[in-house]
Amino acid sequence: MRNRWNIKVEVLGIALAILWLLPFYLMFVNSFKSKKEIFLDTTSPPESWSFDNYITAFQELDFLRTLFNSLLITVISVVLIVLFSAMAAYALSRAKSKMSTFLFFLFVSAMLIPFQSVMIPLVTVFGQFDMLNRGGLIFMYIGFGASLSIFLYHGALNNVPKSLDEAAKIDGANRWQVFWHIIFPILKPITVTVAILNIIWIWNDYLLPSLVINTTGSETIPLKMFFFFGEYTKQWHLALAGLTLAIIPVIIFYFFAQRSIIKGVSDGAVK
């Protein structure tokens, strides 16, 4: 009885999984077809697996450079968010005072502000100071990413006993050393969570970079994809090859880190 039920559930689950993958399947098979073939049939595999579309898309997207831009922005932003948020959360959790409570409250309330509410003044102010470039973008990511990251680090730090700090201090370490040599390594699990949440967000972000970096050659993948798609909107065979290329790095990342990713996303949402 129980066994038969489980088999039914399993079949249902697999059927749903196939349905979930269908959009990716359709994107993939059609990305190898010619324009005419897509017009005739969108559901079956291509007549021949020709890479012509990919070669064109690769060149038009300036793919290696675009990929490098995305990697550069994401890595630098995430590293800085992790380091600065951990430091800030440490200060807030170790110095219990009205000031710390107020600052923590400030960071948490900043999470309530949707991007669109600050977007217009942000862009005009940074524009006046000539900061609409990659440096400015990374700085903005720190500002927008700090709140949630501090919140997560703060929660984790409350479980790290203060006696650890005291012991290291007696051994002659200063604040800076205590933090980097003793505390930060202990926070590794939450660092993974913070890093993953910020990687997913920054890697996929479109609106902010579209407002901040608009010079040719510095575009990230979503940004370049938007222009590319606009140009090839009537040429689905090229657009789909471009979309497949854009997704490949994410699939590779997911393949190697899926456990940490799912755990990170779940921790970030539940806490």
Binding site: V118, P121, M140
Partner: peptide, 23 residues
């Protein structure tokens, strides 16, 4: 205390607080 907090206070201030007040 302030040195540990400085980078995020600067970023949050210029990216969120100032634009919010100005807005």
């Amino acid at each position: 205390y302030w040195l540990f907090l400085a980078p995020v206070l600067l970023a949050l201030g210029l990216v969120v607080v100032v634009p919010m007040v100005l807005g």
